[in-house]
Every structure is written in structure tokens, then in C-alpha cells.
Design a protein around this nucleic acid. Structure first.
Lengths: 217, 217
DNA sequence: TGCTACCGAATGAACGTTCAGTTACTAAAT
DNA sequence: ATTTAGTAACTGAACGTTCATTCGGTAGCA
């Protein structure tokens, strides 16, 4: 088949089946599945939830339309799983810090890593933002999914600061809001103003303002 | 026609044409147009951008599908105009404060009015959030639309505080992010956790944290 | 032989938009 | 005062397209 041949040549980030035999299935995400994720991410970044048909997702991922339905039961399912995928990747990245560092230093480190990660991975950022403000998020909450400890990690991190008397003892959601809110907000502002970028000065200012706000005076 | 009769009885917030003669056309938004706006807002709140077809918008608004196209050239146009409508209504609401009050008081007042407005108008909040993180926002920016002074008002308000030496002299976007970011963030958190609501304590904590962060020490 | 991964044309439903027409009202003409 | 012509508001069935999903089938492997 001509179509097939052309496609094989186009493949760049998806390896062919023969190369990597599956030694540990289900441990690593299947390569096709990953390709579908990346393709969806790219398209949603550019065209939004509406405006990214399954056919295009398949095309970008170099798979057949039907293949997507081998991995996901529906488009909704795909988007729901993609969200989990993004959330895990983000959490894995930001919670890496020097255990020896002071609480203040670790606090700033996690915050800066978050901003940096989202700036470098605009597609993930945009997708997560869209997801949170869409009905998908409520759909996900209805299916109780216990396999998410990102929030717990954050909760523990704040608790440590509160117990040590370093930061103010306020509601967890209040802390989350003051931590994440300004980060996502500034990324959005600069994404839209494509001429200028977030400077190190901006980041330093913001995290200092946040810290001044929540530290015990 | 039977259909027509039933519809006339269903009308509640849309007055019939005969009642209010149009004394100043185009000054107030047409009632049908407003009904279409409200209907769209309601549906998008519940089903997202995808998932709210024109047919449903028309149904909710008690108009024919074709009528929407009398006011808007396309669905995109409708959503773009709805965004302006929401933004204006929000801005009108939040910038109302006692001119005599201190800067700190006015600062807190605007912030609390913003949170209050979004909590009371979840549909507007959700729509604006979805809009900002969708490709529509960039679409809107491409069409240069000079008729928006909301940002300028904010800019002026911050400038006043900086010039008076009350708040830190940092980048405008940094200030906007620390002002609006935590507000939208906490509203989202509580919207999803439908069991608990934002308390006055939460609001007071947050605005105090924000203020401590940006005030000149 | 059976199973899993994968393919892509076919299907049918849903959607945005159009359009031929109706209604409601205004203003000029009679 | 009544008719007439014109216009803007409005209608909803119809159209053509697009899309998510299905399904009959192939390829490779155990």
C-alpha cells in the first residue's frame, strides 16, 4: 500500500513495532498510546477541545482512527486519561528539591519549577487549564479515582511549614490558591503577549511577594 | 400555529414586542440578544463550548435558530461578543468603591467585590475562564479592539498605589497576577468541592496575605 | 488456533449555517 | 383615514458537512 509506505517514512518519534519488543507491558505507556497523547495535546493547544477531531489526532499520531479506540473507549475517555497523564508528569517534575535546603528555599524551588515547567510545556499548561474550566473536570470527580496523591503531597508540604511555625496557619485551599493562582495567572498573561517573556526578575518578585504574604510575620 | 402559542406562554424574561416600544435602539442591548447571551452562558456553564449547539441556544432563549444569525454572523462571533459583554459587566461591578476610603481599603474592596461577583455569577466566571484558556482569546486579540478600558483602569489603580509609595513598584503583570490569580484559583477550588463554600475567614485571610505581600514593608 | 494490535472505509447522527418565507411595524402616498 | 410599499425582525425546515464511533478484516505472534 502506498499510503502505508509514505507513513512509515514520516514516522519520527514513534518507533516501529519490530524494534522494541515489549518486555514489560503496561509498565511503560505503550508508544502508540503516548503518540496519541502527544498528538492530542498538540492539537488541543492549537484548536481547543472543539476543533480537534479524532481523525486529526490519528493523523498527527501516525495511527489509524480505529487504533485510538483500541486504547480508549471514547474521546471523553481519552481526554480524561490525558489529564491524569499530564498531572502526573507535572507533579513528578516539580517535587524535586534538595532535602537539605531550608523550607523557604524549597518553597521557592517548587514554585519556580512549576512556572518553568508550564512555560516550557505550554501544551500541557494549556490543556490542564482548559480541562479545569470545562465540564470534564466535574465528570472526572464523579468517577472517584483514588490514584492521585499530588494534592496530598502539597498538603503535606504546607503542613510541614505550618507545624514548624514558618508559614501562616490558614486553610489548605487558601494556601493552594496563593501558591498556584499567581503562577498560572502570570503564565497566561505572558503567553498572550507573545512579544515579551517572563523575566527572572518577574519570577523573583512574585515568589517574594507570595512568601512575604504567607510567612509568619 | 400550535407551536407558536405554546411558546408565547413559556416566555418569562423576554417581553413581547408590543409592550416596550424601542425608544433608543442600540443603546440598550436588544432583549432577544440579551436572551441569547444568557442562554449561551447557561449552556456553556453546564456543557462547555463543545456541547452547546446553536439549536439548544435558540431553544433556551425562546428564539428560532435563524434569529441568532440575525444578531451574530457566526457562532464564533456570538462567543466573542459574549465575552465582551461579560467583561464589561464584571468591570462595571467591581470598580465601585468609596472614593474617600484609604488605598488599602479600596484595594481590599475591589478584590472582594471581584470574588463576590464571580461566586454569585458562576456562569460568567466559568465562561470567562474557559474563554481565556481557549483559542478564542487569541482570535480576539488578532482583531484589535480598542474599546476596552478595563485593563487601563486596573493599571491606573495600581499606579496610584505605587506612586504613593504604598505598594511595591513591580511589573504591572506581576501585580495583576498576584491580585487576580488567587481569586480565580480559590473560586475554582470551592466550585468543585460543592460541599463547602468560601467563608468570610477565607476571603479575609487571602486578601490579607496578598496585601502583606505587595505592601511596601 | 487464538489472540492482540492495528487498520481505514463506512455509517449515521449531530451540527452550523442558509434561505425562502412570514410577521410587525413605519412612513410615505392616496 | 386608509392604503401601500418598504424594511427589519424573526421563523424553522432543509442542506451539506463534519465528526465520533463501528466493524470487517489483516498482520504478527504464542
Amino acid at each position: 500500500m502506498l499510503t502505508k509506505e509514505i507513513k512509515d517514512e514520516e514516522i519520527d518519534f514513534v518507533e516501529t513495532k519490530k524494534k522494541a519488543s515489549p518486555p514489560t507491558p503496561e509498565i511503560a505507556t505503550s508508544q502508540k498510546k503516548e503518540a496519541i497523547f502527544l498528538s492530542t495535546l498538540k492539537l488541543i493547544h492549537e484548536y481547543g477541545f472543539h476543533g480537534t477531531p479524532m481523525s486529526q489526532i490519528a493523523l498527527q499520531a501516525n495511527v489509524a482512527t480505529g487504533t485510538i479506540y483500541h486504547y480508549f473507549t471514547s474521546k471523553d475517555e481519552l481526554i480524561l486519561e490525558l489529564f491524569k497523564y499530564c498531572r502526573e508528569k507535572t507533579n513528578e517534575h516539580i517535587f524535586q528539591f534538595d532535602e537539605e535546603a531550608s523550607y523557604k528555599e524549597r518553597f521557592a524551588s517548587v514554585w519556580k519549577r512549576l512556572v518553568h515547567y508550564y512555560v516550557e510545556n505550554k501544551e500541557i499548561f494549556r490543556f490542564i487549564e482548559q480541562f479545569y474550566s470545562s465540564p470534564y473536570y466535574e465528570l472526572m470527580q464523579q468517577r472517584k479515582d483514588p490514584s492521585y496523591y499530588g494534592v496530598d503531597r502539597m498538603r503535606l508540604f504546607f503542613k510541614e511549614g505550618i507545624d514548624a511555625g514558618i508559614i501562616r496557619d490558614v486553610n489548605f485551599f487558601t494556601l493552594v490558591s496563593i501558591f498556584i493562582g499567581p503562577a498560572t495567572s502570570i503564565i497566561k498573561h505572558y503567553k498572550f503577549n507573545q512579544f515579551c517573556k517572563i523575566t527572572d526578575q518577574d519570577r523573583d518578585d512574585l515568589i517574594e511577594i507570595i512568601w512575604n504574604g504567607i510567612k509568619n510575620q
